[in-house]
Design a binder for these strands. Structure first.
Lengths: 110, 110
DNA sequence: AAACTATATCGTAATATTGCAATATATAAA
DNA sequence: TTTATATATTGCAATATTACGATATAGTTT
């Protein structure tokens, strides 16, 4: 009890849920939006931009990275982060497809 | 401690996070995909489609409804659920805008 | 090497989420 | 009006998430 029953859903459904869940927090939305704006930055830039403690930002970055939403490359003693565009494209495609299906099926609800 | 610091983020960021978070679970992804396919249905149809207990489905429907992703209308002794298309459109627009910004800024990361 | 900078990890408290049995509520059908 | 059908709510156990101080790790600068 208490754990998500992933085995009951398709691999695609679980994958999309993971990707979407990683963005389901305002701090991570803010991080992604900041990265879109500045293209690339180091963790400390985000710590200065958002007012959350460094370990908190680090933890959010880890989740975004695990989900495949961002990439991180070592750059001296810092780590340079940027968006993994493919993941955003996947999200865009997912919702675009869903939207078009909704338009086609447009039958008034109930 | 332990609570999301919503006051540190913009209303738009918090709103998008709420909408996205509601979809960040495979059961809710499956419910939405099912609703896209069948256009409208009652709770019991979903209970039969997914293999989760009725109270679990009811709880997921509540979350989807609170986030504004679905609508529910009383229909006899049942409740007819359908997708609120506006919310899906918002998600589509959000990621489409983000994608186009990423294409414009396309500078190799790090 | 010592001091500085940047980030990750550990540990922990507070809180939230997930899933379901039991039960309540409300309409429909017999 | 009893029975059946459909959904919501309550209560609870298991687990996950959020946030951060303290600390570890690793490269940079002086």
């Amino acid at each position: 009890m208490g754990t998500t029953k992933t085995e009951k859903f398709s691999a695609k459904q679980n994958y999309m849920a993971t990707l979407i869940k990683a963005l389901g927090h305002p701090a991570r939305i803010a991080i992604i939006e900041y990265l879109v704006k500045v293209n690339q930055c180091i963790c400390n830039d985000i710590v200065n931009e958002l007012s959350l403690a460094q370990p908190t930002i680090s933890q959010h970055l880890k989740e975004l990275k695990n989900a495949g939403l961002i990439k991180g490359n070592i750059d001296g003693n810092a780590i340079c982060y940027c968006i993994d565009e493919k993941s955003i494209e996947k999200l865009q495609n997912y919702f675009a497809k869903m939207s078009s299906k909704l338009i086609v099926n447009k039958i008034k609800c109930c």
